[in-house]
């Protein structure tokens, strides 16, 4: 399989050199993979994801996305790169006071004519695909509601629909289900799996629960204190590895 992302010796240091969030990480992601990042809170998962699309500027290292160096991209190049990497978030990050439709349409902002978007005018095919994507995530009837009227699971689906609008090559999911209850969590994860298998979108998801990672990931990367402590197939994580990643007192919890 062809390589989509190569991360080379990536380092991120916060607070005037006092906190090392990501420490000298290197790995590659192949096209079509479903890579899951696991690790405790504060192990650097979010920082790593945000470095890939440079929401956070990395301190050192190199990120190559489809042959283009992200870390050296100009503002314009970066915007074009970001269009190809969608992201969904733990707190959904919808604009709460805007309608669901507007939230979904904002996924096209990188593509559309900027002048028209200033007066909230989108091309007809974008509108149609917005409805199609809402249909796909199962909430077509909510299009005109305000985003904060929806339940958590529905909000995350809006987030997925917004990501779908970008027609991305890569989907980054930053703890997409940790604010949801287990049943909803699975349905959201299934949408990600569907994108991965049917549309061929490469997925990098950070997850809290190992059981979810085992169920959906094709490969697992475990972080601890900003360093990679495990890299391999889901089946390879045994009790000893688990203790190494999550600490001695941890118990594995099953999410059904």
């Amino acid at each position: 399989m062809e390589e989509l992302i190569r991360i080379d010796r990536l380092t991120k240091v916060y607070e005037r050199g006092e906190v090392l969030a990501v420490n000298d990480i290197s790995f590659t992601v192949k096209r079509g993979e479903f890579l899951v990042l696991i690790g405790l809170s504060g192990s650097g998962k979010s920082t790593l994801l945000r470095c890939i699309n440079r929401l956070i500027e990395p301190t050192a290292g190199q990120i190559v996305f489809d042959g283009i160096d992200v870390t050296k991209a100009s503002a314009r190049q970066l915007r074009q790169l970001r269009r190809r990497m969608a992201m969904i978030f733990q707190q959904f990050n919808l604009v709460k006071r805007s309608s669901v439709l507007t939230n979904v349409l904002s996924g096209r902002l990188g593509y559309v004519n900027p002048g028209a978007s200033a007066i909230h005018k989108f091309p007809k095919e974008d509108l149609e695909s917005a409805f199609a994507n809402l249909e796909r995530v199962g909430i077509p009837e909510q299009a005109y509601k305000r985003a904060d009227e929806l339940s958590g699971g529905q909000q995350q689906r809006v987030g997925i629909a917004r990501a779908l609008m970008q027609r991305p090559d890569l989907l980054m999911a930053d703890e997409p289900v940790s604010a949801l209850d287990p049943a909803t969590a699975h349905s959201v994860m299934q949408y990600l799996e569907q994108m991965n298998q049917e549309d061929g979108v490469t997925v990098i998801a950070s997850l809290h629960f190992l059981s979810l990672a085992r169920r959906y990931g094709t490969r697992i990367l475990a972080l601890k204190d900003g360093e990679i402590v495990f890299e391999g197939l889901p089946a390879e994580i045994d009790a000893a590895k688990f203790k190494e990643i999550y600490g001695e007192e941890a118990e594995e919890v099953e999410v059904r």
């Binding site: 959904f92 604009v95 902002l109 593509y111 900027p114 200033a118």
Partner: peptide
């Protein structure tokens, strides 16, 4: 949060302001 989300779609700075 929403600003971050809109920035990841490849939107310009002022689009982030207008939509987020």
């Amino acid at each position: 949060g929403p600003l971050e989300a809109i920035a990841t779609t490849g939107a310009r700075r002022w689009q982030v302001v207008a939509y987020g």
